[in-house]
Simulated scan of single mutants.
Amino acid sequence: MPRVVPENIQKKQARDAKLLKELKDRRDQERKERAEKRKQLAANAEKYYNEYQATERSLVDNLRQAKAAGNFFVPAEAKVAFAIRTRGINKLDPKCKKIMQLLRLRQLHNGVFVRLNKATVNMLRRVEPYITYGFPSQKTIAKLIYKRGYGKVSGSRIPLSDNAIVEKVLGEKHGLTSVEDLVHEISTCGPHFKEANNFLWPFKLNSPRKGFAEKRHPYHNGGVWGNREDQINELVKRMI
């Protein structure tokens, strides 16, 4: 005589089988989505790399053509600056203090990206004796974000160790789903630069190797503060 399975046991087995199937289907779907996402991220990274290479090649070609023709070639003005605080709070007047707060340069050796326009250029010039700034290359921007990048997630400072951190904050509204997207948005000064820059926590840099020269003097007189233009890349390299 076959063994009779109680009805409550049958119901439990059916429920467990249903839950197990739902779990398996969900995991399969998540695995498929992750694979598609990895493929998309790889395609984006390749597209950005080709874009950077084309821009660099175009600049070199224009310089060579101008030199061959005996002319001058003036590159386009930089759209993004990187500012580093070089002095503390001593003798800091209230207006400069407020500008430092607006720039988010609250501590010594803090660094931030700044979109260049008339207002921000005037702000940088007003606090020049307390900061040094310049125009970072794409490689410098990528190195800063990958090596020293932290994001603002619910008011907390979170290291950018995973693309999911960027996607959680900037993905749905602004279409930035990876750290590479973040680098591209900052380096090209894209339409969502403000949101991407606000997401990035101010960079906490080290004191530069071999130290600063003369903090009291401007950079063009052999000192520290002021506009370094593309020489900011060398300083950032010493401070990472």
Rank of each mutant, 00 (worst) to 15 (best):
P75D: 14
A76H: 11
E77I: 06
E77G: 06
A78T: 11
K79N: 09
K79W: 07
A81M: 04
A81Q: 07
A81C: 09
F82Y: 12
A83N: 04
I84E: 02
R85K: 14
G88M: 12
I89P: 02
N90A: 10
L92A: 03
D93T: 09
D93C: 15
D93V: 07
M100E: 09
Q101F: 12
L102M: 13
R104V: 00
R104M: 07
R106Q: 06
R106D: 06
Q107F: 11
Q107N: 13
L108P: 00
L108A: 09
L108R: 07
N110E: 13
V112F: 05
V112Y: 07
F113N: 04
N117Q: 14
N117C: 13
N117F: 09
K118P: 03
T120W: 12
T120P: 12
T120D: 09
V121T: 14
M123C: 10
R125M: 12
V127Y: 04
E128M: 10
E128L: 03
P129K: 12
Y130F: 15
Y130T: 11
T132C: 15
Y133D: 09
F135V: 02
Q138V: 14
T140V: 09
I141K: 00
I141R: 01
K143P: 01
L144A: 07
L144K: 04
I145Q: 05
I145S: 01
I145F: 09
Y146P: 02
K147L: 14
R148E: 10
G149D: 01
G149I: 10
Y150M: 01
Y150F: 08
G151L: 10
K152Y: 05
L160H: 02
S161V: 14
A164N: 09
A164K: 08
I165E: 00
V166S: 06
V166E: 06
V166L: 13
E167D: 14
V169K: 04
L170T: 01
G171I: 02
H174Y: 14
H174F: 15
G175H: 02
G175N: 09
L176V: 12
L176N: 09
V179G: 04
V179K: 00
